[in-house]
Write a protein that binds this DNA or RNA. Structure first.
Lengths: 245, 245
DNA sequence: TTAGTATTATTGTCATACAATGAAACCATA
DNA sequence: TATGGTTTCATTGTATGACAATAATACTAA
């Protein structure tokens, strides 16, 4: 008792978190790979010397994080977090943190032209067809705000997919889904989306020709245009995005 | 029984998922906001007419998704998913999907220059100081692979922070953390990081002067350089990133 | 006023039970 | 031998009830 002794706080981590961590570690270390089945709850409970409810709580945590899901034979199966999970997490983070349109736009201004450029060199015939089909649908709803916004989201989604880059898809999807629906408002306020359609068409042609530079340029122009449209339509760029736009 | 009748499959969603969904919806609809305390398990169980274990499973799911966490008075509190959660989800998705260095690089090639450009117009004096401090530390470990890689990660992190864009931070952080440590390998194989230091310095000066274009250009050059370094060092760009690199 | 104590509310965990269900095995009949 | 039905079984989803541990609070006593 002579020297002042420092004690590190004893960690009282609940058992369900220990179980969760243990499984998570095994997954990240490659001992469990996507596709592997986890043992039934009873068995796992026995092995880890906890009870079934505890195991189940751990399962729910991992499920929420997208690392496991219900598989065949009703068993839990290890999965790579689906883009959907990442998407949701980002979506929720963006909405709940009050991220603004301007912020989303700035990021899209970086990502979309890059996606277009990559797509120009890598796009597959199938996706080219898909985009063409999307264009056709777009042409038919130039004055229907909701439909058009949907087409817009899809168009950009397809271009990103064409870029054949998982990381890009992962990063941009939630942004696009939150940002582009604002086009609905733009249409409602300043009329039909002819400019949008023209831009999409030009981009499509550039992709078809494999012209990287041109795809990039048109996409950049298109995204800038989108912003100007928002401004003209009186959308407040510094307002936080919300779900019901 | 005359007309062929179509039945829609009855949805047998487990109760814990219903509870989870209901809370999640309330959060996303703004009826529950970050900071709000959830009722105690017993009470909620009563209200929702399920039992406590069921409520607890729902809690664990939401916890795993980062939407709630333990708060004061041991109660569950609604939270906006921390960047950490998004980060983890992306990190896990990237690793488990076998995303390659090249893919990460392509995205960073789009994001980093944009971040630098934005930072040039928005950076705060404090962050400018932070970056200067980072540069000083970098200068001292040009030949220490691990340290240098850490400094590199931090430098880019600071630049992104300076851009003052939550969405950008969210999207790029996990990428940077997975990509830039590869610089360690580069150093080990082709010698000290003078080029890196020079680039960082140039970028810093551009930020200080508020020169958007210059910051962007140097950053782009820097990221391209990084890739060339990897190639020279024999890093296989098409190998999936892994945690222990 | 402060240190200590009792009280209470709430969580973390367990043991146990049981209905519902998907999978698999088995049978019986045409 | 097929086909459709029945049985069995393993496993999950959910409920009940219990109890220890603990943070927060109220309540003492010095």
């Amino acid at each position: 008792m002579s020297k002042p002794q420092t004690f590190k706080a004893v960690s009282k981590v609940p058992a369900y978190q220990l179980v969760e961590g243990s499984i998570r570690d095994m997954i990240m270390a490659g001992e469990l790979s996507p596709g592997d089945l986890l043992p039934p709850e009873t068995e796992l409970a026995e092995q880890l010397e906890v009870t079934r409810p505890t195991v189940r709580e751990a399962f729910r945590s991992l499920e929420g994080a997208g690392l496991i899901k219900r598989g065949p034979r009703r068993r839990m199966v290890v999965t790579a977090p689906s883009p959907r999970i990442v998407h949701n997490a980002m979506h929720e983070a963006i909405v709940l943190h009050g991220v603004t349109f301007r912020e989303l736009w700035e990021v899209q201004m970086a990502l979309e032209p890059a996606a277009a450029a990559l797509a120009a060199t890598k796009i597959s015939p199938e996706l080219l067809d898909d985009i063409e089909a999307n264009l056709a649908r777009t042409a038919e709803c130039l004055d229907k705000p909701v439909k058009l916004a949907e087409c817009d989201v899809e168009f950009h989604e397809l271009v990103a997919k064409a870029a054949d880059n998982h990381a890009l898809l992962l990063a941009r999807e939630p942004l696009g889904e939150l940002l582009f629906p604002a086009f609905g408002t733009v249409i409602r306020n300043i009329g039909p989306g002819e400019r949008l359609f023209e831009a999409h068409t030009k981009i499509f042609q550039a992709l078809k020709k494999g012209n990287e530079k041109q795809a990039e340029t048109w996409m950049a122009k298109h995204i800038r245009d989108f912003r100007r449209g928002c401004e003209l339509a009186g959308v407040n760029l510094d307002a936080p995005v919300s779900i019901k736009d």
